[in-house]
Design a protein around this nucleic acid. Structure first.
Length: 652
DNA sequence: TTCTTCGTAAACAAAC
DNA sequence: GGTTTGTTTACGAAGA
């Protein structure tokens, strides 16, 4: 029964809808409900501007190619260029009035400026993704870049179409006398053979001519594509047909038959040729193969298109490298272990979408909730695995049973997720509108809700309201999560129920909350620090480790706080996973839509609006509560508060 | 393998 | 009597 119920929950969960499609639409400037707002909030570029920049980039790339070809204008090959006066107007008409011709572009901008524009465009593309992108990079490493690359490639396809149209147009006008040899040289000069091959596979999904030859000869090319940063599975490229060979040979029958067998081809879909700017209708894969061989053989035009595409990809790779370096620097700064090269075909957290996402939660270095994360994985890391952010986001877990969300979320929250306050602060809009389960435990969320309130106390109903207000996810299945909230409130000693005149309110006993953390990490700051370094940052969540190290350092650097009496408590305060967040928050949280709490604030004694009518409990809860009540006035965080709060721990 | 944590479901009681 | 609130137990999944 439980299983069925859970399964039903999963089935009815629209989490998948938050996946790639959702974010993709954002990327496309569709202005989805949420995504739109995010984009507007974080990006300084509108979809229209982005499109315009893309067009400019496409033209820029084309222009560069044309300039290179210009040197060989007098070559005899120019005679081979098709000239169709009639087609010129047509092709021109296909171009958006907003587009700027290469000539105009040249008049307006200098090559360096154009190049700078290109770079800028690339950066903007990265920024196009909501802040989750940066967050994902931080929390999940680069693993989700693969899915982002997909998004980029979708944009590239659009750019390709523009590029090809323009190039074709120029060719038809006789402005681009392509010379086969020159074109090939240009290609070869652009990149080394291996890169060329990789790009062919990564970007166009078409094997390079060289590789094609090898494949035709039955050579094993498995050695290529080192750490495939491509979002395209190797298998896909491996099955790519050889549309043409330098020597004029066509693809091998074997491959052909395979293509026809599988009926799939990266350049074929919906009965159309997906070659940039082609869209030729092909009834079946066989016809498509013929079309591919006839129309998209290795000629000047195809080479030019490839060349342009390569430049675009190169720029993206450069940008990726820069962002990677930035990430490394950030992680290093945050005491995180520099992430090792990870396959980019793994989803970003938050959401990661489906097919491309790995189900292995381990794939996420640190999860982010990346909820907002990747375009491909809008889901939270929780459930769908995807998520992701959880992102899910992150992974497409085949959660066929009971726990649609729980376990996954929990692990993510404890091990991989970024600090809750930071995460919520940075992605509050996302969670507020996207039906994505937050990658945090109920306890963490409840605690955050309570601590976020002015008086550090909330009634059950207020907690409910906070959940529904902050997370779209909690606007459904109310019976389930509300029960879970109540269950957590009752179960965890860190949540203290205080009777008011008006009723009962719930507060947080921070000390108790922190005590939930692994006992191993308690001890002297030095011990903690040593343990962290001893672990080599390998067995713990990077952010967690970083926070631990950070806390340890902060403790060491805060003599007033470290007293023999308080050392133990302090440790506990700084060991909690959400403390991690708290600690890290201080480092990371910059702009946020919701107030974030510093560790001191989190551990600040609760101020109960009205004195409890009676304190019946005599367990630690009551003791802690009394201590909290005693300290009443919520002052700004400072050492004194923390110090005063610490003795409560000794009472136990 | 065992223990712990977490999420979920459910039963139950008291208060509203 | 119905709903809300709070407590408790049980179970399964996942990770350490």
């Amino acid at each position: 029964m439980m299983v069925e119920s859970a399964s039903e929950t999963i089935r009815t969960t629209p989490s998948n809808q938050n996946g790639v499609s959702s974010l993709s639409s954002q990327s496309d400037g569709g202005g989805g409900r949420e995504g739109g707002s995010n984009g507007d909030t974080n990006g300084e570029i509108s979809p229209v501007d982005l499109l315009h920049l893309q067009q400019q980039q496409a033209l820029q790339a084309a222009r560069q190619f044309l300039l290179q070809q210009a040197s060989g204008l007098n070559s005899p090959g120019s005679n081979e260029v098709k000239q169709s006066p009639v087609q010129v107007p047509v092709s021109m008409a296909m171009m958006s009035p907003q587009m700027i011709t290469p000539q105009q572009m040249q008049q307006i901008l200098s090559p360096p400026q154009l190049q700078a524009l290109l770079q800028q465009q690339q950066a903007l593309m990265l920024q196009q993704f909501p802040n989750c992108f940066t967050l994902c990079l931080l929390s999940c490493g680069l693993q989700q870049l693969g899915s982002k690359q997909l998004a980029f490639q979708q944009q590239l396809i659009q750019m390709q179409q523009l590029q090809q149209q323009h190039i074709l147009n120029l060719q038809r006008q006789g402005l681009v006398p392509l010379q086969p040899t020159a074109a090939m040289q240009t290609l070869q000069q652009a990149m080394c053979p291996s890169d060329l091959q990789q790009l062919w596979k990564d970007v166009s999904g078409v094997p390079s001519s060289e590789e094609a030859l090898k494949q035709a000869e039955g050579l094993d090319l498995s050695t290529n594509s080192s750490n495939s940063t491509s979002a395209f599975p190797k298998a896909a490229s491996a099955h790519l047909p050889l549309h043409s060979l330098p020597n004029g040979q066509s693809h091998t029958p074997k491959r052909d038959s395979h293509e026809e067998h599988t009926g799939s081809h990266p350049l074929y879909g919906h009965g159309e040729c997906k070659w940039p700017g082609c869209e030729a209708l092909c009834e079946d894969i066989g016809q498509f193969i013929k079309h591919l061989n006839n129309e998209h053989a290795l000629d000047d035009r195809s080479t030019a298109q490839c060349r342009v595409q390569m430049q675009v990809v190169q720029q993206l790779e450069i940008q990726l490298a820069k962002e990677s370096e930035r990430l490394q620097a950030m992680m290093t700064h945050l005491h995180m272990r520099p992430s090792e090269p990870k396959p980019f075909n793994q989803p970003l957290n938050l959401a990661s979408s489906g097919s491309l996402l790995k189900r292995d939660s381990e794939a996420y270095p640190e999860g982010l909730p990346h909820p907002p994360t990747s375009a491909a994985t809008p889901i939270t890391p929780l459930r769908q695995g995807p998520s992701v952010i959880s992102s899910s986001s992150l992974h497409t877990h085949s959660h066929s049973h009971t726990h649609a969300v729980g376990p996954i979320r929990r692990r993510n929250s404890d091990k991989y997720c970024t600090p809750i306050a930071s995460e919520l602060a940075q992605n509050c809009e996302f969670y507020k509108n996207a039906d994505v389960r937050p990658p945090f435990t109920y306890a963490s969320l409840i605690r955050h809700a309570i601590l976020e309130s002015p008086d550090r106390q909330l009634t059950l109903n207020e907690i409910y309201n906070w959940f529904t207000r902050k997370f779209a996810y909690f606007r459904r299945n109310t019976a389930t999560w509300k029960n879970a909230v109540r269950h957590n409130l009752s179960l965890h000693k860190c949540f203290v129920r205080v009777e008011n005149v008006k009723g009962a309110v719930w507060t947080v006993d921070e000390v108790e909350y922190q005590k939930r953390r692994p006992p191993k990490m308690t001890g002297s700051p030095t011990l903690v620090k040593n343990m962290i370094s001893g672990l080599g940052f390998g067995s713990l969540n990077a952010s967690y480790q970083a926070a631990l190290a950070e806390s340890s350092l902060s403790l060491l650097n805060s003599p007033p706080l470290v007293t023999p009496q308080s050392a133990h408590s302090l440790n506990m305060l700084h060991v909690g996973h959400d403390d991690v967040s708290s600690t890290v928050e201080q480092v990371n949280s910059n702009g946020s839509c919701s107030p974030t709490l510093s560790p001191q604030q989190y551990s600040h004694p609760v101020h109960v609006k009205e004195e409890p009518t009676e304190v019946v409990e005599e367990d630690s809860r009551s003791v802690s509560l009394l201590a909290g009540v005693t300290h009443s006035l919520p002052l700004p965080s400072d050492e004194r508060d923390l110090e005063e709060d610490l003795p409560t721990e000794e009472l136990e």
